[in-house]
Design a protein around this nucleic acid. Sequence first.
DNA 1: GACCAGGTTTTGC
DNA 2: GCAAAACATGGT
Length: 332
Amino acid sequence: MLQRQEQIKVGINDLIINKESQKSIIELKYVDSFVLLPVEPFNFRYTLWKPSHFYTGLEAHSVQYSWRTYKLGEKPLGTKIYMNNNNLVVDIFAEGNLDAQDISSLKNRITHSYGLNEDLSCLENIKCSHNYLCKAIEDLYGMHISCPENLFEISIVSLLLQNTTIKRTTGMFQNLIDYYGQLVTFDNICLRVFFTPLDMVSVDEAELKEKCRLGYRAKFVNNYARYFVDNDDNSLQSYDKETLLKELQTIKGVGPYTANVIAAHSLRDFKAIPFDSWNRKIIGGRLFGKSDLEASVLQNMMENMFGDYAGLIALYLIEYEYINNPVVPLID
DNA sequence: GACCAGGTTTTGC
DNA sequence: GCAAAACATGGT
């Protein structure tokens, strides 16, 4: 693990930063609010906060509130999100004023990130032969897929998950975002902001290895950055899902797993399951009592049982696994 | 030291 | 084409 300078905790969320970074914290000011109406059933808490998600420093959650940063073009933004009756309220924090188009793209991004327009009442019709699964669906009922990351960001997250431990994934992520991302503070919260493809396109591979400890992944970061500088999310929207996933796998470092992470999270495909050594154990173990089933075997079993909702069911099982022991607990 | 981690690319039949 | 090896790094 990289040795660090003196570290301090900032914000009521206790973000850990290097002391020398403190001077570069960007203060975001409240600029506006808007309200979105999620389709019912909508479980606010388990949609925006996932008990199984590893620490990023991009978001913080309490029982009532969720704070999150976004990169809108090159502008860093902060959001504070909470429920008011059936409305999802979004307070926006930024460096300066935002124009109508900024607000509109943020609305779209949040709506998409949390699937506010998706109807999950289909969960009631799932044939629940497994008692454990019934409990998972009941206790997490209305939980949507969450993916506030854009295509570049989710690809980077997935790259860092490949063939290593979560401990090291978290370490690599913190190193990367520490060197190449931003630090912001708003509403007494301090958070990190993702770097953009442009930030990474000319970063030296040796630097990524030596400073960020990325290992063999270092050479892939440039590939990802180059691709997403040339192809922003809007231009990729013209592809249908199958074509896009094939297209993304032409990027060196994006294989079937990463493509499936993108499908299941960013493209919000209820059927896709990004099988890895971790969730194979959980899904195989909980549903079939076998923790060492091959991904292809599990895929077939899940599709036979749950059809187009196989991925959604996988999500419920995975999050339920951590419900009483979350990787990153809620703050007070 | 060997082996494994929330995979992917390269190599060698 | 397909299986096996190689890939960086850190922990056990």
